[in-house]
Computed example of a mutant assay.
Amino acid sequence: MTQHAAVTAGPEAATSSKPGLREAEAPSAEAINAFYNGMMPYWHPVLAEADLPDGKLVRVELLGVGIVLARLNGAVVALRDLCRHFQARLSLGEIIDLDGLQQVMCPYHGWSYGADGQCKRIPQLLEGRKIPSNARVDSYKVTTRYGLIWVCLQDEPKFDVPDYPEWGDSSFRTVVMKENEPSKTSSIRMIMGTLDDTHFPWVHQGILGNRDEPAAPDHRVWREGQYLVLQYDVEQPPNLATTDMSAAGVDQIEKIALRYTDYVGMPNVIRLVKDSAAGRYVVWLATCPNSYNQTTNFWAFSRNYDMSPERDSTYEEFSAHVRTQDKPIIESQRPWLLPPFWSQIELPLGPADKPLMEFQRWLEELGIVSGI
Rank of each mutant, 00 (worst) to 15 (best):
M1E: 01
A6I: 11
T8N: 13
S16I: 03
P19H: 10
R22N: 14
P27F: 04
P27N: 08
S28I: 01
S28D: 01
S28N: 10
A29H: 02
N33P: 04
Y36P: 11
N37F: 01
M40K: 13
Y42G: 13
H44E: 03
H44D: 10
P45S: 04
A48S: 07
A48F: 10
D51G: 02
L57G: 02
L57C: 00
V58M: 14
V58A: 12
V60T: 02
E61L: 14
G64Q: 03
G64V: 03
G64M: 00
V68T: 09
R71I: 01
L72T: 08
N73E: 14
N73W: 11
N73V: 09
G74C: 06
R89I: 03
L90H: 01
I95G: 12
L98W: 12
L98G: 08
D99H: 13
Q103E: 13
V104W: 11
C106A: 00
C119G: 06
K120F: 04
L126M: 15
R129V: 14
R136Q: 08
Y140Q: 12
T144S: 12
I149K: 04
L153W: 06
Q154R: 11
E156F: 02
P157H: 08
D160S: 11
V161A: 10
E166P: 08
W167T: 01
G168Q: 02
S171A: 15
F172K: 04
R173D: 08
E179A: 15
P182R: 04
P182E: 06
S187F: 12
M190R: 12
M190A: 07
G193R: 00
G193M: 05
L195A: 09
D196S: 02
D197E: 11
D197S: 14
W202V: 09
V203R: 10
G206R: 01
L208Y: 06
P214E: 04
P217R: 04
R220W: 06
G225M: 07
Q226M: 06
L228Y: 00
V229D: 02
L230N: 15
N239P: 02
T242V: 05
T243D: 07
T243N: 08
A248S: 15
D251I: 07
E254Y: 00
I256N: 07
A257P: 13
Y260E: 10
Y260F: 14
D262V: 02
D262T: 08
D262Q: 11
V269P: 04
D275I: 01
R280T: 14
Y281E: 00
V283M: 09
W284Q: 06
Y292T: 01
Y292E: 05
S302R: 06
D306M: 06
S308Q: 15
R311Y: 07
Y315S: 10
E316W: 04
F318T: 05
T324Q: 15
Q325L: 14
P328F: 00
P328T: 01
I330H: 13
E331C: 12
Q333C: 09
P340M: 05
P340L: 04
P340S: 02
F341K: 15
W342Y: 14
G350D: 15
G350C: 09
P351G: 03
A352G: 15
A352M: 11
D353T: 00
K354H: 11
P355Y: 05
L356C: 08
F359P: 01
W362R: 10
W362F: 08
E365F: 13
I368F: 01
S370C: 13
